[in-house]
């Protein structure tokens, strides 16, 4: 058993047992060698179908006066295009990145919202691999764009040498900036998404299982306390709903900010 804070050792313990990661990460549906196909992968594929299907359906008519569906689609597209792309990357350079930002936002949003849909209740991003995958794509994109637009030297100069600093300080600053921009940036980009989804989901599970335990097993006076944990669970549910949307936005926003750093001239 691992002794860390989130995985409480199972065993012949009596009393309340907090849910663990294993309760969250369901066993695979089928396995081929190391390839274990689980619910999470199914959901990822489903999200592709949902996002692509919805927006292609919304845009199918291209009506001048939009229907309700088209209006929602346009609103979503307009948000990704204007508030994420145009305003942050800049009006002269945002056009090529609109598909990436749009895809990132809605892919993550749908995958996050799985966590709040009854019966599905599994935010895909609570599997760290998915978050890594997105962060790797984002990292490759913004580093690639930066090197292509500015050239290798200028790009790394911009990334590691902030201007307006006395040259002596560069000795300390360059490693720090390199660490923070080149290594910690992608790691936190992925882990922020993962941690919020994972933590939020686990917190809801703890509240829910505690409620269940108090009602089913403790009984008597303790059953009254289940009201408290139940309310807590509902509160956490709505908090999580909010966080799911915000994290999808933050991920895309940070991607846009990083891209802006790659596109803009040295500062």
């Amino acid at each position: 058993m691992i002794s860390n804070g989130l995985v409480v050792a199972a065993g012949e313990q009596q009393g309340y047992q907090a849910p663990t990661i294993d309760d969250m990460h369901l066993p695979a549906i089928f396995e081929i060698g190391s390839f274990a196909f689980g619910k999470q992968m199914l959901l990822v594929m489903l999200s592709v179908v949902i996002v692509a299907g919805f927006f292609m359906y919304a845009a199918r008519k291209r009506a001048m006066v939009p229907s309700r569906t088209q209006f929602i689609g346009e609103m979503g597209y307009g948000m990704a295009r204007n508030s994420l792309g145009k305003e942050i990357i800049g009006a002269h350079a945002y056009k090529p990145f609109v598909p990436l930002l749009f895809t990132a936002f809605f892919f993550i949003l749908v995958n996050n919202l799985y966590g709040s849909i009854p019966l599905i209740q599994l935010p895909t991003m609570s599997y760290v691999g998915s978050a890594y995958a997105l962060a790797i794509i984002a990292y490759v994109t913004w580093v690639g764009v930066g090197i292509k637009r500015k050239g290798l030297g200028t790009f790394f100069k911009d990334m590691t040498m902030p201007s307006g600093v006395p040259p002596v300080i560069y000795v300390i600053l360059i490693p720090i900036e390199f660490m923070s921009n080149m290594l910690i940036r992608p790691a936190t980009h992925a882990l922020r998404l993962f941690a919020t989804m994972f933590g939020g989901h686990l917190a809801i599970m703890v509240a829910a299982s505690l409620t269940q335990y108090l009602i089913m097993e403790a009984g008597g006076f303790a059953a009254l306390a289940s009201v408290g944990s139940g309310v807590l669970g509902i509160f956490l549910f709505f908090l999580e709903l909010m966080i799911q949307c915000i994290q999808a936005y933050v991920f895309t926003l940070l991607l846009a900010v990083y891209l802006q750093g790659s596109v803009s001239e040295g500062h």
Binding site: I184, R185, A187, L191, R192
Partner: peptide
């Protein structure tokens, strides 16, 4: 993002 990196670390 930079500040939050500490918490994530």
């Amino acid at each position: 993002a930079l500040v939050e990196a500490l918490a994530i670390l």
